[in-house]
Simulated scan of single mutants.
Amino acid sequence: MSTPTHTKEWILTNKPTDFPQLSGPEPTFTLKTNPLPPLEDGKVLVKTLYLSNDPAQRGWITKGVDPARLYVPPVPQGGVMRARAVAEVIESKNPKFKKGDKVLANAGWAEYALNDPQNLQLQPVQQLEGVSVTHFLGAFGMTGLTAYYGTKIIARAGPGDTVVVSGAAGATGSMVVQIAKKMLGCKRVIGMAGSDEKCRWVESLGADVCLNYKKPDFKKQLVEATEGYVEVYFDNVGGEILDLMLSRMKKEGRVAACGAVSNYNTSQPTGLRNWFEVITNRLEIKGFIILDFVASGKVGEAMAEMVKACKEGKITVDESMETVVETKFEDVPKTWMMLFEGGNTGKLVTKLV
C-alpha cells in the first residue's frame, strides 16, 4: 500500500460529567480527517489494528477534574482520544522496527499514528504459541498485570485467604479470579457479575461461587457466601457494593481498590455509609495504579509467572477471555460504550474493519 497522507481521528470535543454523548448538539467525540505530518528520522508510522477499551479511559476525559489529581495527564479537549493499540508498522525510519512488524502502540482512536520508538513495544508472540496478539492488550497486557499487582502485592492474598472480586466477568476481574485461585492457591474465591451466564463463566475460571449482583436477593446471598467474613476484597466497582463489602471483611482485612466503574458516569457518585467498619475492624484500603508496578522494574518477573502458569494450564487465556468486536472506524465510540452497558465478557477489544 502507498504511504497514507491523512488519517481519521476521533477528537474529544466536549468533556462529559455524566454518560458520554455520542450524538446531539454537544457530542463527546467528533470524527475528523487530518493530514499526517512527514515521517521524521527515528519515528515510525503505524496502522491501528485493534484498540484496547478500558474503564480508566472514562476518568481521563471527565470535565472539571484537576490534572494534578490524575495519575496521567487528562486527554485535552480538542485532542485525539487516548488508547493503547495493537498496530502494524507501515513505514519506519527507525532501525528497531521494520515494515510489517506488529507492535503495541499509543495510537489513540486514530487510523494511522506517528510514534516515537519509546512508545512502541514489539510483541513476543512466539513465546506463547496459539495465543492471539490481542491478549497483549488484556491478559498479558496492562489488564493482567493490574490483576497480578493488586491481588498478590497490594492485597497480599495467599493460601489461607478468602478473596471476593467485584466485576469478576470483566477484563481485570476474570484474571484476579484465576490468579487468586490457581496461582496463589487462595482457600476460596467469590466473584460478582451482572448475569447468571457471566457467573457460570466466572465459576468455570475457578471461582468457588459467583453471585449475580442484579438479583433482588443479592445482598442476602453475599452475606451467606461470606459467612465468617473474608480477608481480601478486590474492588473494581466502588459505590454500593464497596460499601456492602466493608461490612463483610474480617478484622485487618485488605481491600485492593482498583476501580470505581459504578460512579464513572455520574456527577453524583454514591457515598459510603459503612466507613466506621474501616475503623472498628482496622481495615486496610489501598488504591493502586499499574504504572507504579511498571516503574518498579518487576513487570518482567510477573509476566514470566503468568506465562508459566498459562503454559502449565493453571490459567486460561483463550478466546473466552475477550470480547472482540469487529468495528468500522466510524463506530469506535459505540464499541467503547459497551464497557458501561455490560456488553462484554473478559477484555473488550475493538477490531477495526
Rank of each mutant, 00 (worst) to 15 (best):
Y213L: 05
D217K: 10
C310A: 12
Q221R: 12
S262K: 05
L291Y: 06
I279A: 12
A309Q: 05
K298T: 07
F218M: 04
N212W: 07
A193R: 01
V255P: 00
I289H: 00
W201M: 05
A257M: 09
N281R: 13
I290F: 02
K220Y: 03
R200E: 15
K250S: 08
G238V: 11
F293L: 11
I241M: 15
C310R: 12
F276L: 11
Y213H: 06
V299T: 15
G238P: 01
C186G: 08
A225V: 06
L244F: 15
I241G: 11
I289P: 01
A225P: 10
L211Y: 09
D318R: 06
F218P: 05
V223F: 11
N236V: 13
C258S: 02
E231R: 13
V223D: 14
S204A: 11
S247W: 10
C258D: 02
G259R: 01
A295G: 00
V237L: 02
L242R: 10
W201N: 00
G191C: 08
A180H: 14
K250Y: 03
N265R: 00
S296T: 09
P216E: 15
L205P: 11
Q221L: 13
C310D: 07
I289R: 02
L184W: 09
E319C: 06
G239W: 01
Y264R: 07
S267Y: 05
P269H: 02
V209Q: 04
Q268K: 13
I289W: 00
E224Y: 04
V317Y: 01
R200I: 08
A257I: 12
L184A: 10
T270F: 11
V189A: 01
E319V: 10
E224T: 07
F276Y: 13
K215S: 08
